[in-house]
């Protein structure tokens, strides 16, 4: 399957075929990022490294991401230099691959791509997996001068201001979560949130709208219909996406920024686990 050239940034996606041909390319690093904590160890793409959303990307004592020094160390031990093309893939239709890509963007690593269809597509096509963990010679990754939170990350206050100004807020959770009928994601246990509903004024567009049955992204035309024609998003608008902890909204963030070319999209990673528990946060329910 070829990548739709009508995407705003088609270069942000690579096909499984492309990855298959570049498994041994020196300047390419394949990165698996999953929800299933042990999935990488059961078998992964040859040469792929594992970056775990919680262990590797999050601060272990503060609800926040790692600092630039830790990011540089993470890259160095995985053989990634600033010039390395990082190809992300994973389970769950690439939720965590998009999340990891978004975190790499927080540190200004621009040379990033998603393998369209993720791990499931690779396996469905009968492509090889291995349990061999690759080893790389130590490399140097300069410590990024800043973490670019202000550019692509939204915090509570910003999401609240967005709500009050009736600017685009996209709730990418399931319809039941959006409506406040359930306080957990379908097929998952309760993740500790007090109230159900959504941020006032948020539009409910589940992340799943953006993908096909095989986890590949829908065509540019289909995505434009969903987000531009039907939802009414306009070029130049500031947009904030959220879910429960920021992974599904990373997926939508990727769609809006790279496939549709919206320049001012932010991911509110505090999402519903912050908003739904926060004292004084207004919520809206719908039926």
């Amino acid at each position: 399957m070829t990548i739709d050239s009508n995407y705003a940034h088609p270069e942000a996606l690579v096909s499984t075929e492309w990855v298959s041909e570049h498994l041994k390319s020196e300047n390419v690093r394949i990165i698996e990022s999953n929800e299933d904590v042990l999935l990488y160890e059961t078998g992964h793409l040859p040469g792929a490294v594992h970056i775990d959303w919680q262990r590797d990307l999050q601060d272990q004592t503060i609800r926040d991401y790692i600092q630039p020094e830790a990011f540089a160390a993470l890259c160095a031990r995985n053989g990634i230099t600033p010039g390395t093309t990082c190809i992300f893939y994973g389970d769950k239709s690439n939720w965590w691959a998009c999340y990891a890509l978004w975190v790499f963007q927080l540190f200004g690593h621009e040379n990033v791509r998603i393998m369209n269809g993720g791990r499931d597509k690779w396996i469905a096509e009968g492509r090889p997996l291995t349990r061999e963990v690759p080893k790389f010679s130590p490399v140097t990754y300069p410590v990024p001068p800043v973490r670019r939170d202000a550019e692509i990350r939204a915090f509570y206050d910003e999401a609240l201001a967005q709500s009050r100004s009736k600017s685009p807020l996209i709730d990418v959770r399931s319809p039941g979560e959006y409506k406040g009928l359930v306080t957990h994601m379908p097929e998952y246990p309760q993740e500790g949130v007090l109230r159900g509903g959504h941020i006032p004024g948020a539009h409910g567009i589940p992340w799943k709208e953006a993908v096909n049955a095989d986890a590949t992204f829908k065509s540019a035309a289909e995505l434009r219909k969903i987000y531009e024609t039907d939802l009414g998003l306009q070029s130049g608008e500031k947009i904030i996406a959220y879910c429960r902890i920021g992974e599904r909204s990373s997926h939508t963030w990727f769609v809006l920024k790279y496939l549709l070319g919206f320049d001012h999209v932010k991911n509110y990673d505090g999402s519903w686990t912050e908003w739904g528990n926060r004292v004084g946060a207004p919520i809206e329910k719908s039926v």
Partner: peptide
């Protein structure tokens, strides 16, 4: 402790 986390709670299921 490292593996018992949000999104791996189905281990109790």
């Amino acid at each position: 402790a490292e593996l018992v986390r949000l999104r791996s709670q189905t281990v109790y299921y």
